[in-house]
């Protein structure tokens, strides 16, 4: 059996660890609530926007080509990996990084320090590295947006995808790979969104009178192309933040629970050791007393 002093030290250490993890859990919980609200409340915007884009028939798109809508033959990929800045959030980053493709020619943009560290350790071609504040700011999104649009328009990459943890609820996050450029797969995206919003496509039947476009389809397509990229990325980052804070809250809660149960079993061991020592002393006293007689 270990010494009493040793066990006592361990109990003290475990207790202080549990205090720290509890504090972190509480901090993460408050951040989680806010991040979740942001992510959920901004979903309708993208849904409505893609609903408008789905009104664009293929004929209209072909006639008024915007570079963002044209898919190219070459498929040089650029992948935006949205990790976290800090650790202590369970297997969140690990499950995400497992999905990073091994192809050599893929270039990367990292968001969050953990993603940057992972990609640079693997010596992948990292083009830029961003860090996002807990409360996602538009100018941060704009920076990423500008870079991506520039790379795409200057013909340096042909496909831009984003890898992130999609927020389901506090306990479930789905590592997702979403294509953001070119925006030719709209109907798929729209169908996915409808599914997550529990709506049917029949809900959005076309009016037989035909749509009127004001002032001109071309201008509307330009406008949509500009904002859709921006708010698509914005939504992705909000979802990633919501997942991060939820994962951290759960991880810290588990850590606190583990620390508490460890502390309890250590206390039991401590009491046993103490009792053992006392019993020994009594026996020694008793032996000494009988020998003296």
């Amino acid at each position: 059996m270990k010494g009493i002093r040793e066990i006592k030290n361990r109990i003290r250490a475990v207790d202080s660890v549990s205090k720290i993890t509890l504090a972190m859990q509480l901090v993460a919980a408050s951040k989680m609530k806010r991040a979740q609200d942001f992510a959920i409340e901004s979903r309708p915007y993208l849904l409505r926007l893609s609903e408008i884009i789905c009104c664009l028939s293929e004929k209209k798109l072909k006639k008024n080509m915007h570079p963002f809508f044209i898919s190219r033959e070459k498929q040089r990929r650029c992948l935006i990996v949205v990790g976290t800045d800090k650790g202590l959030c369970g297997v969140l980053n690990h499950t995400l990084f497992k999905l990073i493709p091994e192809e050599e020619e893929t270039s990367f943009i990292s968001v969050g320090r953990k993603a940057m560290q992972f990609l640079s350790r693997r010596k992948r071609s990292l083009l830029a590295s961003f860090s996002i504040h807990d409360r996602v700011q538009y100018h941060e999104v704009l920076g990423i947006c500008d870079l991506v649009a520039k790379l795409y328009l200057e013909d340096q990459v042909d496909v831009v995808e984003v890898l992130y943890q999609k927020f389901g609820n506090t306990l479930t996050y789905l590592p997702s790979l979403q294509r953001i450029l070119p925006m030719d797969g709209f109907y798929d995206v729209f169908d996915q969104m409808l599914k997550s919003a529990n709506l049917e496509r029949e809900h959005f039947q076309r009016d037989p009178r035909g749509l009127l476009w004001e002032p001109h389809v071309r201008q509307i397509i330009d406008h949509i192309a500009k904002i859709f990229l921006k708010y698509n990325l914005h939504q992705v980052l909000l979802e990633a933040k919501a997942s991060e804070h939820s994962a951290r809250m759960v991880a810290m809660k588990n850590a606190t629970d583990n620390a508490k149960s460890l502390s309890q079993s250590l206390k039991l061991e401590y009491n046993k050791a103490r009792q053992y020592a006392i019993t020994n002393e009594i026996i020694e006293l008793a032996i000494a007393a009988t020998e003296n007689h």
Binding site: L211, L212, P215, Q219, H223
Partner: peptide, 12 residues
């Protein structure tokens, strides 16, 4: 001004 039964429209 948009009133009920307006023609379908997409506008900036």
């Amino acid at each position: 001004e948009i009133l009920p039964m307006h023609r379908p429209l997409i506008a900036l």
